[in-house]
Amino acid sequence: MIRLQNVHKSYRKNGLVTPVLDVPELEIPVAQRVALVGRSGSGKTTLLNLLSGLVKADSGLVQVDDEDLTTMSEAACDRFRARSVGYMFQSFHLLDGFTAVENVELGASFAGRSGPRKEAEQLLVALELGERLHHFPGELSIGQQARVALARALIGSPKLVLADEPTGALDGETANTILDLLLKKSLEQGVTLVVATHDLEVAAAFDRIVRVEDLQ
C-alpha cells in the first residue's frame, strides 16, 4: 500500500522557491496499476521520485508498505530503492559499455543479492531477447532497448515499479507492445505499477488513472 498525506514539494534555485507538487491525500493499493497523467510540469516525475525516495518531500507523509520515506535516511532510501523499487526511464538510460544482460543485472546489483545474472537472462528470454543477451545498447533497436529497460525494472521482483513515460520515445506499434508487456509482467509479478504519462490512450489501459493536477 502506498500512502501520501499532505505532501508538499518545492524546488529552490537562486533563492527562488518554486512549488512543484502538493498532494493532500493519495492511496494506491498493492498490485494496483496506476497511470499518473497531467500536463508537462504538473509534478508527475516529482511524484515518482518521491515514491522512489530519490527526493524527499518538504513536508507530509510518503509511505510505501509501512515504510515512511520522509523520515528515512538517504542510505536507507537507497537500500529501499535497491530492494523494493524498479525504475524505467523514458529514454531508458541503458549504460553504453554494458551488454543487455549486464544492464539488466545492474538493476539487482545494489540489493545485495547473489545470482542476478541468471534471473537477468531469464527475464530477457521471456521478453524475447534471448538472442540479444550479449549485445550492447547501440546494437539494439529502440524497441529492444525498451525491453531491456523493462527487464531491468522487473529484476529482483520489486514491490513497486515506477515508469516515467515508458512509451514516450517509441512509435505506436512498439509502444503498444512495450505497454502490454509492462502491464502483463507487473500483473504476473503482482507488483504495484505507477506510470507517468501524458498520453491518455496509454493511461486508459491501466487499472486507475490519477490526474496529478486534481490531487492538489
Binding site: L54, F89, H93, G107, S109, F110, R152
Partner: peptide
C-alpha cells in the same frame, strides 16, 4: 552524470 544518476536510481549509494 547520467550514468551515476541511473546507478543511484537503481539503488547505488552515494558512497558506492
Amino acid at each position: 552524470q547520467k550514468e551515476f544518476a541511473v546507478l543511484r536510481a537503481l539503488g547505488a549509494k552515494r558512497r558506492t
